[in-house]
């Protein structure tokens, strides 16, 4: 008898959030599948960061729920199963790069599969040897971003939220980050928010639009890349018209 291993899914149902009277998230419902990178596209102010903050439980949602489904059984996500990388890197500046990594690995040693020597991790993201024992305070923006991304990847969270993490990086670092994400997506659900369409098309397996406070998948079937882009643009423009009415 063949045993089929079911992929893990992340389900959001009717998630809502408003500030004052403005409904930022109206009725978010979507199912994300493991092993894929989802490009979350939305216009500036569409609510991408609010969605991530709600999923990471930094901001309480006004309604709805989200959970993991594995083997047909739903369960709530534990905080340590969510990785969240912000566009502005946040690292403990009083630690050196090596100390931060050591602390992270020690705290999560039960959940990190196949722990490597610390230098292997640094090699993975291209942080030079002479920088590894410097205070994180003195790291450049790109290096801090790499460290932030690295610890989130080592932990192999079930859900990895990336809030425009490549926007402010130089082209070389951005390319390195993209390679890392592609190599690391196997057991993770990655939601990658950006407002740069080419970046989303280049990196992501699926494109999801956040417009009118709702999520909507854009089907790529039978479309070349130009048609696909036009379709996305059209969908995003509709939001502007709706807002004008």
């Amino acid at each position: 008898m063949e045993i089929r291993e079911e992929n893990t899914r992340f389900v959001i149902e009717h998630l809502a959030k408003k500030y004052d009277k403005k409904e930022v998230l109206r009725d978010i419902s979507f199912t994300f599948e493991e092993g894929k990178i989802y490009g979350l596209l939305g216009r500036n102010g569409a609510g991408k960061t609010t969605l991530f903050n709600c999923l990471n439980r930094d901001v309480p949602a006004d309604g709805g729920q989200f959970y993991l489904v594995r083997d047909g059984r739903p369960r709530l996500l534990r905080p340590e199963e969510i990785g969240y990388v912000l566009s502005t890197p946040t690292v403990p500046e009083f630690l050196t790069g090596r100390e931060f990594l050591k602390f992270f690995v020690e705290i999560n040693e039960d959940s990190i599969p196949d722990i490597q020597p610390l230098d292997t991790y640094f090699d993975m993201i291209g942080i030079e040897e002479e920088d590894r024992d410097r205070l994180l305070r003195d790291y450049s923006h790109g290096m801090k971003n790499k460290m932030q991304m690295l610890v989130n990847m080592i932990a192999k969270p079930k859900l990895l939220l990336l809030d425009e993490p490549l926007t402010s990086l130089d082209v070389v670092v951005a390319e390195e980050m993209k390679q890392l994400l592609r190599a690391d997506k196997k057991d993770t659900i990655i939601i990658f928010s950006t407002h740069i369409m080419d970046l989303a098309l280049d990196l992501c397996d699926e494109i999801v639009l956040l417009s009118h406070g709702e999520l909507e998948a854009v089907n790529k079937e039978n479309m070349d890349s130009k048609e696909f882009k036009e379709r996305i643009l059209e969908a995003l423009k509709e939001e502007e018209h709706a807002a004008d009415i």
Binding site: E80, E81, L86, T90, P92, P157
Partner: peptide
């Protein structure tokens, strides 16, 4: 300020 953005 920085560490509270990490789930663990």
């Amino acid at each position: 300020r920085s560490m509270l953005t990490y789930s663990f």
